[in-house]
Amino acid sequence: MEALLASAIGLLTAVGLYLMLRRRTFPVILGLTFLSYAVNLFLFASGRLALDAAPIIGASDSYTDPLPQALVLTAIVISFGMTAVITILAIGGFLTVGHDRIDLDGDDEAPK
């Protein structure tokens, strides 16, 4: 189980990083989304894995660590807020300058 979750976290990170290294805004936003999935899962994993141990008092015999869950819960909502902000930034950039490249015009690597 642990190996499965760890590979999922690793893969999500890799996909997030690869997409963030793209040159257009939309893939970068998706990359950030992937990265926040990975980070949220990682934070959640810091409470270690447990089956049938939801931290509801009285519902089971043992409880998993509720603190990482509380942190991740708010993190999920905040990452939505951040995704929304960069999305409108991307739209604004596209509508203002007419393209959705993320690089400045002075970039010599960028295709003209």
Binding site: A3, A6, I9, L12, T13, L17, Y18, L21, F42
Partner: peptide
């Protein structure tokens, strides 16, 4: 280049997560 960087980053994060979980 990007895939290599991303791959190493993913591998490292995954390994870190695994080390933590175990």
């Amino acid at each position: 280049r990007d895939a290599t960087l991303a791959g190493i980053g993913g591998l490292a994060t995954g390994a870190l997560a695994f080390a933590m979980l175990t």
